[in-house]
Design a protein around this nucleic acid. Sequence first.
DNA 1: AAAATAAAAGACAAAAATATCTTTTATAGA
DNA 2: TCTATAAAAGATATTTTTGTCTTTTATTTT
Lengths: 144, 144
Amino acid sequence: MFSKTCEYAIRAMIFIAQKSKDGSKVGIKEIAKGIDSPEYFIAKILQELGRKGVVQSMKGPTGGFYLDNSARKTSLATIVKAVDGDNIFSGCGLGLKQCSDKHPCPLHHEFTKIRKDITSMLNKTRVGDLQEELDQKLTFLRRD
Amino acid sequence: MFSKTCEYAIRAMIFIAQKSKDGSKVGIKEIAKGIDSPEYFIAKILQELGRKGVVQSMKGPTGGFYLDNSARKTSLATIVKAVDGDNIFSGCGLGLKQCSDKHPCPLHHEFTKIRKDITSMLNKTRVGDLQEELDQKLTFLRRD
DNA sequence: AAAATAAAAGACAAAAATATCTTTTATAGA
DNA sequence: TCTATAAAAGATATTTTTGTCTTTTATTTT
Ligand code: FES
Ligand code: FES
């Protein structure tokens, strides 16, 4: 469904939301441990998300990653689009170069339904909301 | 959603269903052209599907690939499982090692709904049915 | 100002997915 | 039986994804 990169990105965003909700910042090592991802790899991913303004960061002592109030409202759709592009939102399920009602692949009718559900789900799910459930220990970001 | 391999596999199966509906067989070159895939690559994929009994084939002159009556009833789920494994049917959307109601990731509740829809769609969609629409030129396997 | 810290940037490495080519085997037809 | 045909099998190559390491830059603290 999502690339590994994207899975890590979403998990990291939720983790950062949690750890920075009191205004503090969280370092890359803690993030990597918290979401069980390769440290250098998630660093690269967050670097890119930082460039796109999806996550905030600060260098130096007491520095780290955090989410400002607007970033907490980021939808999963925004993250997925930033990392995986928009194939999942508009691409053909059978890999035709273009998905189109006028020139549909054999799966088009069934697939567009699913794709619509996915899009709507990703659009309405926000990082901040997921973080709250995590806080209540109702959900988890890693399996020990 | 699906790997490239899997997309080619599904397209090829539908194409073969169409070309072999009168009992004849279709060669790898014609398949590759018909679904716009790399020739040697789809050959490998069909070889593997052949080993698993999902597609039938015959060597030598007048040989080629075809689908017997039982193979026409193959669901997309069977093809996807044979090629991509069962991650899409049971894997965690955020990449946790295990998806579980007891230890859910933050996306679990939303994701399992989608996954259920996908599974059900793939289970009830059969190669033979898709081939019929293709035959009526209502759908297409490539974009020119 | 100097030292320590932590992310950014850039280079590199390994693994997996995708794609191609060559040789072998089975089958049909002359 | 010989030849031509087409898939199977095996080897190799390329590209993309995933993962790692090193150097640089910004910031804080001493
Ligand atoms: S054309 Fe394939 S999903 Fe629309
Ligand atoms: S645990 Fe992630 S989808 Fe179920």
